[in-house]
């Protein structure tokens, strides 16, 4: 694809991502914030595509924008927060200080990234330089390139991740369970079994 076209696409997506992010922070209602968040995630997924991380782009949309955000939405609905249009920003003095701190972090990060000049990350989008990653994508495919190390080098962390998900499911059940009279037990095992994979 044309590099200029890619750059243009990237610029648009970046603007959308930043704008949506600001929308998340300053959105009036939780539902609005959530929808801005989805938009931000979608544009980041687009950037992933440009960076040739196709698999991540796909699960970004499916898992993040799809599953996790819907989970948030459910909770907002469940708690009936959707009609709460009051702005819950902190006071202006606090906000100024917060702005200073977060801006400082952003600034320091930018400054850090500037130091990376000359280490191979300096070229704009870093496209297209036919680097090692591109070659292995050609060789193994977009999925294979991530699956191969995931099931070899990183197989132990990968399995532990499964356990983490199982624990999270059980934990979520225990935490959110209503205390029913008569002390019914939580059957976390069955639900966790699905969640773990």
């Amino acid at each position: 694809m044309d590099i200029d076209l890619l750059s243009t696409a990237y610029s648009i997506l970046a603007v959308v991502a930043v704008g949506s992010a600001l929308g998340v922070v300053f959105g009036r209602s939780p539902v609005a914030s959530l929808l801005f968040m989805v938009s931000s995630l979608a544009s980041i997924a687009g950037i992933f595509v440009i960076l040739e991380a196709h698999f991540l782009a796909a699960i970004q949309v499916m898992v993040y924008a799809g599953a996790i955000m819907v989970l948030f939405l459910f909770v907002i609905m469940l708690l009936n927060l959707g009609h709460d249009y009051q702005q819950d920003l902190k006071g202006w003095a606090w906000s100024m200080v917060a702005l200073f701190v977060s801006g400082g972090i952003g600034g320091v990060l930018v400054q850090r990234f500037l130091d990376l000049r000359g280490t191979g990350l300096s070229l704009g989008l870093g496209l297209p330089n036919g680097n090692a990653l591109d070659r292995s994508i050609e060789e193994l495919g977009a999925l294979g390139v991530i699956a191969e190390p995931l099931y070899t080098t990183y197989v132990v962390p990968f399995e532990i991740t499964g356990i983490l998900l199982l624990v999270a499911i059980v934990g979520a059940l225990v935490l959110a369970k209503r205390n029913v009279e008569g002390g019914g037990t939580v059957d976390g095992g069955a639900a966790g079994g699905e969640g773990g994979r």
Partner: peptide, 12 residues
């Protein structure tokens, strides 16, 4: 984006 996220955590 990180800075914006941080700001959000702090002000909301």
């Amino acid at each position: 984006l990180f800075a914006i996220g941080t700001l959000g955590v702090l002000v909301r």
